[in-house]
Design a protein around this nucleic acid. Sequence first.
DNA 1: TTGACAAGCGGACGCGCGTCCACTACAGTG
DNA 2: CACTGTAGTGGACGCGCGTCCGCTTGTCAA
Lengths: 230, 230
Amino acid sequence: MSHHPKLHTPPAAPRPGHPSSRPRERRDAAERRQRILAAAARLFMERGVEAVTMEEIARAAGVGKGTLYRRYSDKGQLCLAVIDACIRHFQDEVTAELSRADGATSALDQLDAFLGRLIAFVEAHTEWLGVVADQAAGERRGAFHCGPLYQWVHGVVARLLERAVATGEAAVEDCVYTADVLLATVDVDLYLFQRRERGYTPERIRAGLRRLVAGLRARPAPEGRERASP
Amino acid sequence: MSHHPKLHTPPAAPRPGHPSSRPRERRDAAERRQRILAAAARLFMERGVEAVTMEEIARAAGVGKGTLYRRYSDKGQLCLAVIDACIRHFQDEVTAELSRADGATSALDQLDAFLGRLIAFVEAHTEWLGVVADQAAGERRGAFHCGPLYQWVHGVVARLLERAVATGEAAVEDCVYTADVLLATVDVDLYLFQRRERGYTPERIRAGLRRLVAGLRARPAPEGRERASP
DNA sequence: TTGACAAGCGGACGCGCGTCCACTACAGTG
DNA sequence: CACTGTAGTGGACGCGCGTCCGCTTGTCAA
């Protein structure tokens, strides 16, 4: 298992596939990459993600800053690389569960289950995801939404919505848009705000999200509906 | 018109109200503040918000960086101060419209109208709001959600939702949470992503949001409903 | 008017990020 | 094995932010 089409930095940069197709990554370079990842993981665990600087990571890994930035264009990318194993695991589980429940469960229920898993994932990696989000500012605005992780999650949600529409379970006009909306719900910034400032539990957030999904269900009688074009 | 309880930096810092209650802001300080605001507004218009540095603003205003930071703790606050007039105008219009339509229009329709206005506001000030959002990173995470602007907008939405529930129009369990969700929909990052990458028009976004609100309507027959307490 | 005190000022400074480029050393070639 | 091109390296550097602290100046009381 575990093959989501080049979502993750495969081995490194040149070629993921054939063993003798291109000047593949140098041996020493690969070793340094391991050192970097190990050092970053250790420091992040020890002192928290925010408190560690790129310079420290470079020093701890015994490489220069240039080398560090060659592989990970910013702290966010490095974070994603560090929790890469978790991400793959998450994706594998989801993929497995979805294909298992394929015909047996309604699409909307699968969506609900997926969102539950997603909340758990966010809850478990808030600090990391927070840093990732921070990097997507200024010049890099929108980088996260354009990145493979969001694309994948969005794809899953949109596909489930489309299936739900096809089976008549749900009445959704614009699945792509709606998927964005559902995911905006677990945006790290909002999630942290609700957890920290509002004092919500993950369960409460989950419940709210579930009710939102319930609102997508097709209605028995479209009587007092919205007027379509004013 | 135009009195929302200290949402904006009133005159400056010490006291908004009585004329002889505290060592009110010095005259020269006030003048400098005007210079800063004018310089910032000009530079932002000329070269775009992102491209202007705090140092340049200070220089253009003929003050030191320390002075600049004394009043506006970061670029985001400065941005908000520059578009303060627009914000007040927005709030006044909304307040007026809401009190005008008070008994005449259904709460859900008022909500819909408000969200339309909100989208227009975001569309008009994306660049500024983007910078504001950028500042709410790292240490300052959640600053925007804690700030007066979000609080106010959230209050409006939550109140309308509560009214809709009271009149039986809508079936919403958790109005505060739902307000957060509706607003997450027009989060600057997401909004820009949908506008730029997905190529959505504001109208399309508005339509999607409207449908989301429609999903909150109370159902005629609660048949295949969610099980309330598992 | 004078004195005193705090509010206000401003620029030097430190920090972290990310870039840049002269140098190194690995991996194919003859 | 010597040769060579090129991926890879690392640290000096520049930038923008935000802070800090010694100096200035308005304001109020005597």
